[in-house]
Design a protein around this nucleic acid. Sequence first.
DNA 1: CGTTGTGAAGGAGTTCACAGCA
DNA 2: TGCTGTGAACTCCTTCACAACG
Lengths: 216, 216
Amino acid sequence: MGDRRIPEATVARLPVYLQVLVEAAEAGTLTLSSDDLARASGLNSAKVRKDLSFLGTYGTRGVGYDVAELTTEISEVLGLSVDRAVIIIGVGNLGSALASYDGFDRRGFKVAALLDADPARIGTCVGGHEVRDAAELPAIVREQDVTFAVIAVPAGRAQEVADVAVAAGVSALLNFAPTHLTVPDHVTCRTVDLSTELQILSFYEQIADGPSAAAG
Amino acid sequence: MGDRRIPEATVARLPVYLQVLVEAAEAGTLTLSSDDLARASGLNSAKVRKDLSFLGTYGTRGVGYDVAELTTEISEVLGLSVDRAVIIIGVGNLGSALASYDGFDRRGFKVAALLDADPARIGTCVGGHEVRDAAELPAIVREQDVTFAVIAVPAGRAQEVADVAVAAGVSALLNFAPTHLTVPDHVTCRTVDLSTELQILSFYEQIADGPSAAAG
DNA sequence: CGTTGTGAAGGAGTTCACAGCA
DNA sequence: TGCTGTGAACTCCTTCACAACG
């Protein structure tokens, strides 16, 4: 305790705990032990306790963690107590699916605009949002104080789109294009790529099926 | 060298290298140094060399790595040289987007079927594939030798759907539902959750904006 | 008595730095 | 000379094990 820096690996697990806590609250559960949290998250209890210890001391020995209290604490640490405006750039298949995704709102992320460069798409309505011209990006970012951009354009366009978004003032990018994006230090970028995930799965599936699979 | 076990962290980066290699090949580049690969992947050259050393020795000192050779090698290690049949379970917004995603085919993943439990969706056509009754899952898996399942159903249904898929013989799951799935040891499962990604971004964005942001 | 919080040990992944080779 | 391949050092993360506490 006393240390303010939360390890990267811990940060990546906090959303999972939050998920479990929200479900527990809906089910009327008031407290959860580190072991309960671990089972629901697919982890072990020591890891859970270590992770939560970075947030401060919030458990009660012999009892566990207060669901409501821990929910608030994790939300605050993750910066979810403030609403954030998000734009989705690229309204193809994936961008459209994201625009209709209700998980944004439920976690305090407000979709400020959908943007596309294709004139055929501009003006259409997707997931309750009107598609606007990509050229309006800087104005929208400034007017609506947008901090997050979801990039759902083809790989070849991703870097230029990211550059424009960053120049306009966006400080966090969620990139669905299968390319590494170079961004300034003050900008955070995460890339999620379906192909990559499938290929990782492929490796482990292959190993499991391999010669030493059912070896005893 | 000599060790057959490839570290998890390395496996997770191989698809990124593959991506860069394919792009290089399309551009007519014949060799890439570890530094070239590193820059294009957002890593450093020592890490790239270490990673590639686990595959065997494929670079030429003073020159770099042969693009074609390394592409083949990584593809083989990842098990991409064999075509694999994939089913997509759940044809909502995300499932539909995935069904229309061309990245599956390009990497040797063949969409064998789309499945949904909603009668209103069964029989419709999405992304060139007919939506079939979820009850047909076991038959489809057996007949078409399906090894991968993409789960794009609501969180509350994900575990039961996973259980059915595993029982039918699927051995790798890509889960888009925001829940941890419990699967037998011989099954590989990866969960990709948009909310989680956004929340992780939120943490770092908040830190960057915080009191000590531009401190020197 | 049950569960947390945490030092200490152990293991995994990263970076360094340079010998070895084309 | 330039770039790879790799032992060794280092940093980060996980697991253990148990004292502290409600």
